[in-house]
Structures are given as structure tokens and as C-alpha cells.
Design a protein around this nucleic acid. Structure first.
Lengths: 201, 201
DNA sequence: AAGGTAAGCAAGTAGGTACTTGCATACGCA
DNA sequence: TGCGTATGCAAGTACCTACTTGCTTACCTT
């Protein structure tokens, strides 16, 4: 059963290019180098195949993680953003199509949302830890700040290919977003934790 | 020639629901209460019709504008965001589909980008004016801050219907975004311009 | 009253769509 | 040697797609 994987990968490519309606079983079969009948014998229907594609791609995604105890805030967050952005960029076409098709195919919703939830939770926890360390303002609107931060990342991934000149240069983007975010949460002057004062600084 | 307008409105609705491939000429004709042939006689082809829809909707959009000389920063910006959000929400399905179809139908790109450019330019000019008034930090990363702000609005419009609980409550959202943004540009403590300095109000 | 114009209707064209069926072929395992 | 399983191939079903053609009806203007 080597075909199964080949078909899923091919279907992912075709779906990324053309969306659900444009991803014809014929195109997918050709792209996979497989007879169209095999596709139906393996997955039953086009809808089931595309659903398998999403669950597969969802499980393949390796989202980076932030440390539980922030130390070098800027460096840590920049590294995280850099990894998250490159992971998201791979999924961009998939995300774009699922987003626009959610109303017609609700089963795509989970895929379109999950990453966002994950990012949100992770950044929230990280900022809360920063606050407990006394290195971030406690009077900020945490939820909104995080939403704006994560939205900036999503916006970059989705929008940059269309309006490249609106965004900061590719290689500077993570640092730029992080610095603005740290400013927003009142942590822009937070230096690295001093090892002689491990609790606070 | 009453049909033309009726067809465009119907096509906009159908396209918003089903995207380009799903918006069949038959469906559009039924939705418009018009014979399918009339559609081809008026627009020539499905592609031309959908293009007409985008230019029409593009011209219908009334984007709010910010004052050239900021006075009550928070109130002004909140009003602007509120208007911009409700204008964008109407376009959400259209934006979602055009975004995901840009690769296949490049003529949709203009529509998907224009509003964003406009918002970006307007906020940038407004913040620059604030800086000249000495009411916003001059050492900020203007471009990135504005990108994050506009991304927050786009993210709210596009994402809220899918993950409502991730965002601030609908009615609080404009104020929340604006406060975080003002903090980001170092203007969160900027009060209203004093009326005893009439030069600036 | 005459002529032009917008529209409806019925039918047809040429092709694409998801999906099925029946049969042939190859491979691995007992 | 024989049998199950995976796959290919050719053909077919029933339906949908954009788009066309020829003809008829209604209204508006001169």
C-alpha cells in the first residue's frame, strides 16, 4: 500500500493549487502517477481523500515551543517566531483554501484553527511567566496583545506574497514583530535574567 | 438595463458563498431571477462577470478616513477602527475567496490588496502627524507597528467567525486594539490637545 | 404605426465531473 | 501450485459546465 501516501501527497499539492473544487480526482491521480480508480478504491470518495490530506498535514506540522521560564526574552521569542513563520509559510496555500471553504466544508475548520489556538496559548503562557518574573507590565491587555502578535504572524504569512512591500524585509520580520510586541506588553527594556538573581532581577 | 445591476448583486452573493468555481452561471442566473442567456449577453463570459463584481464592490467600499491633525487620539482612532471593521466584515467572504484564488485568477489580486494599502497609508500618515506633534515616540518602528495594527484588524475580520473566543468581545475590540497600538507607538498617555493651544485643534 | 432593443425560452454543443463496473495482470505468501 | 490482494485499463453512467443559436415577446421611441 505505497499508493496511499503517494496519493495523499499528490492531493495535497493539487488541493494547495486549486482548492477543493479545482482539485479533480483526475488531476490528483495524474499527479500521483496512479490510476484514478485506485484513488476511489483507497479513499472511497474525493471528500474523504481531502479530509485525509488535512488530518495528515495537521499531524505533520511541528510547531515550535517557548520556554516555560523566559530568560533572554528577545532572542527566545525571535527564534520562536522565525520557526513558526517558516512552518506556517509551508501551509499557506492549504490555509487559504480551507479558510475560504469552511462554510461549505465545515470539516476543514479544525485544520484552519488549530495552529492559531496553539500559538495563542503558548504566547499567553510565556507572557504570564514574564509578568510573574516582574519583567512585563501587569496592567496590559494580555489577550488583545497576544491576538495582535499572532495576527501579525498570520498576516505576514498570508499577505506578504500579495503585497510584499507592505511588510518588513523577510529576514528582519521576526525581530521587528518581537520588538513591537515587547513594547506593547511593557517588556521592551527587559534584559536577560541575571544569573545571580535567579528569581527576579 | 435593470438586469445588469441585479446580476452583479446576485453574482456577488453567489461568489461570496461558493467561490469562483462554485459560482455557476446557472446559480447566478437563478439568484438574479434572470435567464442564464441574459447573463452571457450582458457580460460575455463568467470570468468577465466576476471581474465586474470585484470592480463594482471595490468602488462601493467606503473606507473611513482619519483626521490630518490628530486631536483626541484614542477617540479618533477607535471611531476609525470601528468603521473600518464593519466595512471589512461585509467584504469578508469576497476577500477570503479572492485571496485563495489569486494564483489562479491574478485579476483578483488588486481587489484583495487595495484596502490594505489604503489603511496602511492612512494610519502611517496619522502616526507621523502624531510624532510631529510630539505626542508619539519618534524611535518606534513605524512600518512594523502599522503592519501589526492593520493585521490585527484583518485578523479579527477573517478569524473571528472561525475562532470567536480567541478575540476580544466584538464591542470592545476597536478600543482594545487601539489601546495596544497606542502603547506600541509610545502614545498611550497622550491626552487630548489642550484647547488653550488653538494652533493644533 | 414602425423599428430598435432588452429580455425570455427551448434546445443544443462540447467537454468535464465524481464515481462504477468488469476484466486483466502482477506480486507475495501458504 | 494456488490464492488473495493490490493495481491497471477501458468503458460506461448520470450529471453538470460554460456558452451558443434561433426564435418569440414585450416595451420604448420616433
Amino acid at each position: 500500500m505505497v499508493s496511499r501516501e503517494r496519493i495523499i501527497e499528490a492531493a495535497a499539492r493539487v488541493y494547495s493549487k486549486h482548492g477543493f473544487r479545482g482539485a479533480t480526482t483526475r488531476l490528483i491521480a495524474i499527479e500521483a502517477g496512479v490510476n484514478e480508480v485506485t484513488l476511489f478504491r483507497t479513499f472511497g470518495s474525493k471528500g474523504a481523500l481531502l479530509e485525509a490530506v488535512l488530518t495528515e498535514k495537521d499531524s505533520q506540522l511541528d510547531w515550535p515551543s517557548l520556554p516555560l521560564e523566559p530568560d533572554d526574552v528577545e532572542a527566545e521569542l525571535v527564534a520562536w517566531v522565525t520557526d513558526a513563520l517558516s512552518a506556517l509559510r509551508v501551509l499557506r496555500p492549504l490555509l487559504a483554501h480551507t479558510t475560504s471553504e469552511v462554510e461549505e466544508r465545515p470539516e476543514a475548520a479544525k485544520f484552519a484553527c488549530e495552529g492559531r489556538h496553539f500559538a495563542h496559548d503558548q504566547v499567553s503562557a510565556w507572557v504570564t511567566a514574564l509578568q510573574h518574573q516582574g519583567r512585563a507590565d501587569r496592567n496590559i491587555d494580555l489577550r488583545t496583545s497576544v491576538v495582535m502578535f499572532v495576527s501579525a504572524m498570520m498576516g505576514d504569512v498570508m499577505g506578504r506574497p500579495m503585497i510584499p512591500d507592505a511588510y518588513p524585509p523577510l529576514e528582519d520580520a521576526p525581530t521587528a514583530y518581537v520588538r513591537c510586541f515587547l513594547r506593547m506588553i511593557g517588556a521592551h527594556d527587559a534584559a536577560k535574567l541575571n544569573t545571580s538573581h535567579p528569581a527576579h532581577r
